[in-house]
Amino acid sequence: MEGKRRMIEVEMLKKDLDHQRIEELMSATFSKRRKEIVGDQPLIGDVMTRWPAMFCERQVRAEFKRIVSTDLLESFLNGLDDLVPRLLEVFEAVTKSGKKPALKAILDCVKKDNTNERRRTAALLGLPHYLSEDPSDIIRMCDAHGESLAAAMKGMQLGLLIGYEGDNQDAFPEVFDVAVVVEENIVLHNFKDVPSSFTMLLGIIYCVNLEYPRAMKYSFEFLQKVVMKIKPDEASARVHGVRNKLLRYKL
């Protein structure tokens, strides 16, 4: 097993990666990797050093499927698309009384540009506000050509760093690059939209056995149990209530 792990390190140093070979080696070393990650709970930097192949979109999806037997991207985006219309409607309803101004600002962005990607983004970024959670330490915006990455990531234990270009006047700007951050380390980047980066964030949480951040625990639980339908019967009363409200809601 250790020999195969070292072979992965060698493969990852090559200019032209042999993805099939890496896939076979990652599959063969799965039990060793899970024993290390779940049993020893190493720092993310140590995981990245020992298992460098895991920190690319292809292997995050593969590892997630090994753990959950579900296709990460397909399950997330299909489940999200089924709920986006009702989510945006309940968001709109709760803001009509003047409550949750941050949520209203997000909805205003969709009114300016009502594309499917923007609707998905609004649903994801609006969810913690709807659930009365504070996403500020988990979802951060930064000027791609302004502040340094170190400053932008300071204190981030887990989340998304959304880089934008130009003047940011909206609740969510045009995306330049999104990075997944763990323990102030960028573990994945070069995502050009929020939905796919959210998907990879969930994948990383599973791959390196992380707990959901307390400040957004209900939002992540909703994504897991309602959007992706993973262990839906174990939903908390709060998430179960939101799910029932969405099922009853008439568009």
Rank of each mutant, 00 (worst) to 15 (best):
Asp113Ser: 13
Tyr164Thr: 05
Asp137Asn: 14
Leu158Glu: 15
Asp108Ala: 13
Thr115Tyr: 10
Asp134Met: 00
Gln169Phe: 10
Tyr130Val: 09
Phe172Glu: 10
Gly155Ser: 05
Gly163Asp: 04
Pro135Arg: 05
Thr115Leu: 01
Met141Thr: 06
Ala151Cys: 07
Met156Phe: 07
Glu165Lys: 13
Ala102Arg: 14
Met156Lys: 13
Ile138Leu: 00
Ala123His: 08
Leu103Arg: 03
Gly163Ser: 09
Ile139Arg: 01
Ile139Val: 12
Pro101Leu: 11
Asp137Thr: 11
Ser148Asp: 14
Ala152Lys: 11
Ala151Val: 08
Lys100Ala: 11
Leu161Thr: 08
Arg140Thr: 12
Asp113Trp: 01
Glu117Tyr: 04
Leu131Met: 14
Ser148His: 09
Leu125Gly: 03
Lys111Asp: 06
Asp113Cys: 05
Thr121Phe: 03
Val110Met: 02
Gly159Gln: 08
Gly163Ile: 00
Asp167Met: 08
Arg120His: 13
Glu117Cys: 09
Asp167Tyr: 15
Ile162Trp: 04
Lys100Asn: 12
Ile162Ala: 07
Lys112Ile: 01
Ala152Leu: 07
Cys109Thr: 10
Ala144Tyr: 15
Arg118Leu: 05
Arg119Leu: 01
Pro101Ser: 10
Ala151Tyr: 07
Cys142Val: 12
Ser132Tyr: 07
Ala150Met: 04
Leu103Asp: 00
Gly163Leu: 01
Ala122Lys: 03
Glu165Asp: 14
His129Ala: 11
Lys112Glu: 14
Asn168Lys: 14
Asp167Phe: 15
Thr121Val: 03
Thr121Asn: 08
Ile138Val: 15
